[in-house]
């Protein structure tokens, strides 16, 4: 009995190793072939925030779980901040990772905004993740993420 168990374990490990190898290769190939393609939103984010690494948290991105019409998807961003002269949110950038052009909007706040909160409506081409990145006055960068299922896409057509 123990022999049998051993064999299945080895088999599974071999399978997993092989699978992960293929997955790694698959992930590498499109990157090499088309560097801008898959990571367009990451390029856009880099342009907006430079080399800063966003930390998950503080940013609440409000979006419907399922958007029936991708042409107009209501969204809200709220950032946890006291919004005083010494500690406030400077900007929030919103990216739609699956859109042909990932930039959605940049909201610029000041301490006179009172609340780091804004709402608008966006177009989503397909089911995807939406990311909001907040730049604080002290240089820290926070990030929030939401995935949205889109029934009818809202780009071009």
């Amino acid at each position: 009995m123990s022999d049998k168990v051993k064999i299945t374990v080895v088999d599974r490990r071999d399978f997993l190793l092989g699978a992960s190898g293929i997955a790694a290769l698959a992930a590498f190939l499109p990157l090499g072939a088309k560097p801008a393609g898959a990571a367009a939103w990451q390029d856009a984010m880099k342009q907006a925030i430079g080399d800063a690494t966003p930390v998950e948290g503080k940013v609440n991105l409000g979006l419907p779980e399922i958007a029936e019409n991708g042409n107009t998807v209501p969204f809200s961003v709220d950032v946890d901040s006291p919004m005083t002269d010494g500690d406030y949110v400077k900007a929030v950038h919103v990216f739609a990772t699956g859109n042909p052009r990932p930039q959605v909007v940049t909201f610029n706040f000041t301490p006179s905004s009172g609340k780091a909160s804004a709402r608008s409506r966006m177009r989503l081409g397909k089911t995807q993740d939406v990311i909001a990145v907040a730049q604080m006055s002290d240089g820290k960068v926070y990030m929030g993420r939401r995935s949205v299922k889109v029934t009818i896409g809202g780009c071009g057509g």
């Binding site: 998807v73 930039q103 959605v104 909007v105 940049t106 610029n108 804004a118 409506r121």
Partner: peptide
């Protein structure tokens, strides 16, 4: 706000 084409 700076709007991009993805705004409805």
């Amino acid at each position: 706000a700076n709007l991009a084409t993805a705004i409805s």
